[in-house]
Write a protein that binds this DNA or RNA. Structure first.
Lengths: 350, 350
DNA sequence: TTGAAAGCGATACCAG
DNA sequence: CTGGTATCGCTTTCAA
């Protein structure tokens, strides 16, 4: 390891250094790195030098020269939500085998933040981009159009997608849950949601609740909205407290997320209310806690990991004719919507 | 928006396009973008063209030319663990104001995967790197040394850090928890951990448990190891089942993570065992669920977000004299260890 | 299968 | 305060 030490204070090796020491041209080194046609003997010699030197190719130079990066830009509202981190895992699984790096951003549910991140990520010339949701600023739309890269919107099915959408209707999923509660015999049904106007998927679930309650003629909607997204366990207690104060005779409550459902159930226990005996509670998202806790929580299961995987596949497919520096625009694929299944999972709590 | 459409099928604008249309040189455009000294009038004119064109500077070209990127490489064992995602949030909070982009990687607790990711991230010439834990392959060490960038190891305090460490002793924290249980009067104390040899922090907690049990002369350690990291809620049930089968008279059990503690408590409920009446259960990490569930879970609180924040600050401080392309190596800062506080949080479960 | 030359799009550096 | 010129490290392209 003495030569390692010797190398410490010098500038890192370049491709030309490798070439010189291996007695070949830069191009041959480049080909070895790219796994292209190089004779076995030459390849071995070059690889040996690479290893000895600890040579690491400069991605920026490569990107500049070839006009294509190995980045996939991904924007989610929150990295702390297990739903979105599952989606990221799915995307990562799809992309990693192709040597693509995720460039991850966290919009905090804000469209202005999303716009800022899109702009900042576009600087790195990503091969494609995955966004969450179907709502974006005007500027974001323009930036994305001009970038001419494949775009997928996840977790929703916008009526007018930018390019491809991979998701499901949160409105319909919420309606399905209300129907489930109805079929179980519950009539006075409430909804616990977040206070933020920015969480579109949360709002859609609320809209779904309201319209199904109307369709089933279950009386005036009972909606409580507490706290900012991402919804956490601690949102549940104050929300159900408010609900029970305003409508004490509520029989069942559906929550915008399993997180708040769990918090609500714990608060019920604290008050000596049995679930579902005194009040039924349902969640959304099928988070791990729902299957583990007591009682187990009835929820809507969504394949978050699958959304990431399918998004990755859609994006990879769109590369097929991908443009490089040559300025050719991506051929106009017609916008597609890829529907992800969701299912109501009946458990003990409702 | 008609000219927007017109632009769609042409190659994206370059700095030279902006310069030409604004009637200045590229350098002036570059200065406007960098916020350097440019007269108000010129700046306004250039900015106008930038906005009209929707010009986005190419980061790869910038990085190549300046010899410095705006990337911060971050490696965590798992992005799904709320502990690590909190740390990532902290890092992101520290770095974002400086225009730095996190390059996130997920090692899945494997050192070979870490090595692969380090190599792949080094290709992007990150300004610095944050790793989790103090154990790395020989090649990883060499790569990092040669890269000559500031490195922080998080969540641990290695005896021989590469550069800077920001963390705490998992061994000592676990010992503190055993002492807490001892002070509460428990004597026959078990430990529920993961089966993986790769999760160093989990292993350290186990080692801490074992040594404190010995120090307090509590008899032979009662260790159950189930499941791979990251430890989830579903690990708790089989683990406590195994423990109770092997040592039915156990009075208290400490878990490697709040996740398994929660799962274990739910399993106790299922079996009609009261917690802490029949058996006390403690966790580690102070995850949200521990404060919300019933009974609330006694745990070790670690400031995961703070680890990220402090790591970011340490890294930013190390940039001060940061090297650019000029090949100057970072002056040898002596390795530092930044200790993060942890506290035993007594709650209902133990 | 290999090599030489010509950029890619920005910034550093030095003049003016 | 502004502009010209020379890179930066790699890949493309074409020729041998």
């Amino acid at each position: 390891m003495t030569d390692t030490t010797a190398l410490l204070h010098s500038t890192p090796p370049r491709m030309s250094d490798v070439a010189r020491l291996a007695g070949v041209s830069k191009m041959t080194v480049s080909r070895v790195l790219a796994g292209r046609n190089v004779s076995q003997a030459t390849r071995a010699r070059v690889q040996k030098v690479i290893d000895e030197l600890g040579y690491v190719a400069d991605a920026a130079a490569g990107a500049l020269s070839s006009g294509r990066s190995e980045f996939v830009a991904v924007l989610v509202p929150s990295l702390s939500s297990s739903n979105f981190s599952d989606t990221v895992r799915g995307l990562s699984t799809a992309m990693a085998p192709h040597g693509l790096q995720l460039l991850l951003g966290d919009t905090d549910y804000r469209l202005d933040q999303e716009e800022r991140l899109v702009r900042s990520m576009l600087r790195h010339q990503p091969r494609c981009m995955a966004l969450t949701g179907g709502q974006h600023t005007e500027a974001t739309h323009t930036l994305l159009k001009r970038a001419g890269i494949p775009v997928v919107e996840m977790w929703d099915l916008p009526t007018d997608p930018i390019d491809t959408a991979v998701g499901f209707s949160n409105v319909k999923a919420a309606r399905a849950m209300v129907r489930h509660l109805y079929e179980r015999g519950y009539r006075r049904i409430g909804f616990l949601g977040g206070a933020s106007e920015l969480d579109r998927r949360g709002l859609d679930r609320m809209r779904g609740y309201v319209s199904e309650v109307k369709a089933l003629e279950l009386g005036a909607p009972r909606v409580i909205r507490v706290g900012e997204s991402p919804i956490t366990m601690s949102h549940g207690a104050p929300a159900i407290a408010a609900l029970l104060e305003q409508w004490p005779d509520t029989e069942a409550v559906m929550c915008v997320s399993d997180m708040s459902a769990f918090g609500a159930i714990m608060e019920c226990h604290r008050r000596g209310l049995s679930v579902p005996g005194d009040i039924a509670v349902a969640g959304f998202g099928n988070f791990e806690v729902s299957a583990c806790c007591h009682p187990t929580i009835t929820t809507v299961s969504v394949d978050a990991y699958g959304i990431g995987l399918r998004t990755g596949e859609a994006l990879l497919a769109a590369f097929g004719s991908g443009s490089s520096r040559s300025g050719e625009t991506v051929p106009a694929r017609r916008p597609r919507s890829i529907r992800i299944e969701y299912t109501v999972v009946p458990r003990e709590s409702a």
